[in-house]
Design a binder for these strands. Sequence first.
DNA 1: GTCTATAAATCGATAGAC
DNA 2: GTCTATCGATTTATAGAC
Lengths: 200, 200
Amino acid sequence: MTDVRTERSSAAGQPTGKRQGKRERLLAAAIELLHQEGVERTTLADIAHRAEVPVGGVYYYFKTKEDVVTAVIEAHAAEVRASLADIEHRHGSPKDRLKALVDQFASRNELIAEFGCPLGTICSELDKRHVETSPAAVLMRLPIAWMEEQYRALGCDDADELALELMAAYEGSALLANTMRDPSILTGAARRINRGIDAL
Amino acid sequence: MTDVRTERSSAAGQPTGKRQGKRERLLAAAIELLHQEGVERTTLADIAHRAEVPVGGVYYYFKTKEDVVTAVIEAHAAEVRASLADIEHRHGSPKDRLKALVDQFASRNELIAEFGCPLGTICSELDKRHVETSPAAVLMRLPIAWMEEQYRALGCDDADELALELMAAYEGSALLANTMRDPSILTGAARRINRGIDAL
DNA sequence: GTCTATAAATCGATAGAC
DNA sequence: GTCTATCGATTTATAGAC
């Protein structure tokens, strides 16, 4: 639906200097499809087709489907880390930083009402593959640990609980907004969360 | 793992009087597996095997896999309705009723940390089947509408928002508890929610 | 190094035996 | 009415051609 072309013709550190952005296209397609269609319902053929890459050719860039999932998780983690670093760079006070994160959440309300939170849905789905430690759990811990830092900088003793509460409020609202297909559930949640931050 | 045998040898309104509890066993197995393994990962063979019914025999009791899913949703809805009716019967005041619901949530913390909220996970997963109105959305609306009634009886103008907030806090905490495999996230959430109800 | 053709396995569903 | 045997479609993965 949306055009996610992060093309960069023959750049980056590939061994041979003869690569177009095929791996990047496959990864971008996988990120979209795993979010919109779900991990289990997305086939490698779907990914290859959206990336405009030959169907069997996926296995040249990824060993297995689980490798694709791992790459998607790492891409999400990199994006979250970059977002948090950007917020830290743009805002000095912990309160402003927390509210900037809430604002950033709010900028994707329509997408989340349609397909759910990218982090939340993938965590929920990957939990069903009973691996010891879910590889998606790191995605959740990134923003939570960061929020805990901010709350701690504000002098809150229960910084860990406040961070969990904020994330839970957001993820729960994302689930309800997605289930009811109603983005306004997320705007209401953002308003309440911001009010709580101001009242600290 | 847990024994869900709602056996009732040849009862209920079947056309012929010659039915053991096979359909009931299949439904009970489906309820468990859809929760623990997920909708997409659960096969009809898995369900038949857990119900100790011949593999192909599922199709005598259910037309298609989607029919099984529909039956599971309806079973969940019936259970939720029964729980809410029971709470209304046992408690007179809206505050006590809301807190009784939170207590009931809390009684399943370990199960939820292991497999997620049965309602939340099925809503999240079924949303990926882009049907107009998700059949699982009714599951979410049942407790939300009921909570809204209680808040309205307490004289809250923003009863709808309070109900959404409570449900979101619970579902978000369930997702985090499941992702981190930590039931204490749910006990912390329940404590906060109860505090909010008392402060009304 | 890249991709086509195909193997191997799995799953939903059906036809028909008992 | 109940269930066995099997079909057809799909999907992951590989072997090997170019």
